[in-house]
């Protein structure tokens, strides 16, 4: 059984040219005893099979919440998810528990930020991969073990046979994240959700993991929704970028366009505050102020209080989506729609 060839047999036929993922006006609201927090306020996007979309934003911008909403991985009693999410034609928000369980880890898989805390510390890596394979593909113990071994080989973990018997604390951070990737890929997902998978790693390990992810993504033709706060990481892996601020996408577009001609003041600020080559002698710019308090959102553009171009009209109502090109959206009153 070759994993690379075994991508779910769905290419053009199943999707019929339609995007694999379609999210429309997604909202996520957390209610606790003393506060109501609107973490996501109307996010819409589509994602094709084999495409990598990067959600870029500061902590608290709602990017991880958006990601978790994709497989309803938020505490159900305190969370209200609105809008529409469809993956491969399935209405995620309408699925019952059983169908949701089939989807999670099967068609849609997730890689977490902290590989140390996202493995159960008292089970071996092998067991944790095998239980997923057994759950979804109904394999026997022996077959599941064989599959787990292949997966560890695919993510280039040295001496994989021995590693299957390892507990998470017996591995290094990079090794654990490789194992986490193997686990996520174990049932050949069509959509991979990656929640800052390199943030907790050393810089040298980071780039290895990114390259590994990129290679596997291309080999398997997976769609990837990748969340990060690191512009450098986003540049490395994505086809398209969505910049998120205060629970909204403020700018979306192809990687190149976003990096070279950022339109939204927030995107400009993010890029200007990033260290890259050819900056020697220049002063690093920081975005003034701090991220908006989601429990007390301003009525207008959420970025207005920190924006150097802010004008009275900005605080009236949240700016609508403006398509400045067929592939580029900006939520700013200064943006001019294409004609």
């Amino acid at each position: 059984m070759s994993l690379t060839a075994a991508t779910r047999d769905q290419p053009a036929a199943a999707t019929g040219g339609a995007p694999l993922v379609r999210v429309e006006d997604l909202t996520v609201r957390f209610t606790s005893r003393d506060a109501v927090i609107d973490a996501v306020n109307g996010v819409s996007f589509t994602l094709d099979a084999g495409e990598v979309l990067c959600i870029l934003g500061e902590s608290g911008s709602g990017k991880s919440v958006t990601l978790r909403a994709m497989m309803r991985l938020l505490p159900p009693r305190r969370t209200k998810i609105g809008g529409k999410i469809s993956v491969g034609g399935k209405d995620i928000l309408g699925l019952d528990e059983g169908a949701l369980g089939d989807l999670r880890g099967g068609e849609v898989a997730m890689i977490f930020q902290e590989p140390m805390t996202s493995f159960d510390p008292v089970f071996t890596i092998g067991t944790q991969i095998m239980e997923t394979v057994k759950r979804h593909d109904g394999l026997s113990d022996a077959d599941a073990r064989k599959r787990a071994l292949e997966l560890l080989e695919m993510v280039q973990i040295p001496s994989p046979v021995r590693r299957l018997e390892n507990y998470p604390h017996e591995m290094s951070g990079g090794m654990r994240q490789r194992a986490m990737i193997a686990l996520a890929l174990s049932c050949r997902p069509r959509l991979l959700l990656a929640d800052e998978p390199t943030t907790a790693l050393d810089a040298t390990v980071q780039i290895q993991i990114l390259q590994l992810l990129h290679r596997i993504q291309r080999e398997l033709g997976m769609a990837v929704l990748f969340v990060t706060h690191d512009v450098g990481v986003a540049v490395e892996i994505s086809d398209r970028i969505a910049v998120m601020y205060a629970g909204r996408f403020v700018e979306t577009g192809p990687l190149r366009d976003i990096v070279h001609t950022p339109q939204h003041p927030y995107t400009q600020g993010l890029l200007a505050s990033t260290v890259h080559g050819g900056m020697r002698g220049k002063r690093l710019e920081a975005i003034p102020g701090s991220p908006v308090n989601l429990a007390a959102m301003p009525p207008g553009c959420a970025f207005a209080p920190r924006c150097r171009y802010a004008e009275p009209a900005c605080t009236a109502a949240p700016p609508a989506e403006t398509w400045i090109e067929p592939t580029r959206m900006v939520r700013c009153i200064r943006a001019a729609p294409h004609t």
């Binding site: 497989m71 089939d102 902290e114 089970f123």
Partner: peptide, 25 residues
């Protein structure tokens, strides 16, 4: 409330299996 329980749910494991993980911990 630990992250790995979310990870177990993200793998699609059924309730009893998740319970086993929690109880062993």
């Amino acid at each position: 409330s630990m992250e790995f329980v979310s990870a177990l749910q993200a793998k699609g494991l059924k309730g009893p299996r998740v319970l086993l993980h929690i109880m062993k911990n």
